[in-house]
Amino acid sequence: MGFILQILSQILFFFEKSGYLGVFFLMALESTLVPIPSEIIIPPAAYLAYKGSLSLTGVILSGVLGSLAGSLFNYFIALKIGRPVIVYFIKKYGKFFLITEKAFYKVENFWDNHGHISTFVGRLLPGFRHVISIPAGFAKMNLYLFSFFTTLGAGIWCCFLAFCGYFFGKNEMLLKEYLHKGSFGLIIFCVILIAFYIKFKLKK
């Protein structure tokens, strides 16, 4: 417990010094493959907003913009470097792994048709939000659509974390409880959304 409190105090000190730029920077790292959970970034910053050092709106905006920046970094790395490497690998060695160019282009076609819902839902799910921009880059998803649905998903996630930190940041037990309940609620929301999406597509 003392170790956790020490880390939390260091994060709070960091945000007191760096402000919104610090939130932006850490959330940008969180949206790449750097293992920094957003649960230890946004809530402490929102708690400072509760104390009056920052504004809640500023914390949310800097968090969302940071998430978008990190996601775009992954997207362009996958698009400019990862895609040519993957295509070359499949052409040369795919037969040894039972992977064909046709299968790769099927995945690409899937992303053309369902990339928007995949990107949006991926931003809300633990474990997926860090990597969802990589397949989008591989599949050359439309940049504007990618940015829109990334921002939408990141906005919902950052708002949730910020409200938790703002209202429950001074009580660690309550904060953990509502972060857990809220994360579980978002997973249920994603499952329901996907079910409706599939039903709509089948009916269409």
Rank of each mutant, 00 (worst) to 15 (best):
M1Y: 01
I4H: 09
Q6F: 07
I7H: 10
I11W: 00
E16R: 14
E16W: 00
S18N: 13
G19D: 10
L21T: 12
F24Q: 02
F25Y: 11
S31P: 12
S31V: 12
E39V: 12
P44I: 00
P44Y: 01
Y47F: 13
Y47Q: 02
S53H: 11
L54V: 04
V59M: 01
V59S: 02
S62T: 06
G63A: 13
G66F: 01
L68V: 15
L72C: 09
Y75F: 15
Y75T: 08
F76Y: 15
I77V: 15
I77L: 15
A78Q: 09
I86E: 03
V87M: 05
Y88R: 15
Y93P: 10
G94D: 00
F96A: 12
I99T: 13
T100M: 08
E101H: 06
K102T: 11
K106M: 06
E108T: 10
N109A: 10
W111F: 15
D112K: 15
G115L: 06
G115Y: 05
G115Q: 06
H116R: 12
I117T: 13
S118D: 04
V121T: 14
R123A: 03
L124Q: 10
L125K: 08
P126M: 01
R129E: 02
I134L: 14
I134N: 07
N142M: 05
L145R: 15
L145F: 09
S147N: 05
S147A: 15
F148R: 06
T150P: 03
T151Y: 00
A154G: 07
G155N: 04
I156F: 09
C158Q: 10
C158I: 11
C159S: 14
A162W: 00
A162Y: 00
G165N: 04
Y166R: 00
F167W: 02
F167T: 04
K170G: 02
E172W: 08
E172R: 11
M173E: 14
K176H: 06
E177R: 13
Y178M: 09
Y178W: 14
L179I: 02
G185L: 00
L186M: 14
L193F: 13
F200K: 15
K201V: 12
K201R: 14
L202P: 05
K203D: 08
K203S: 09
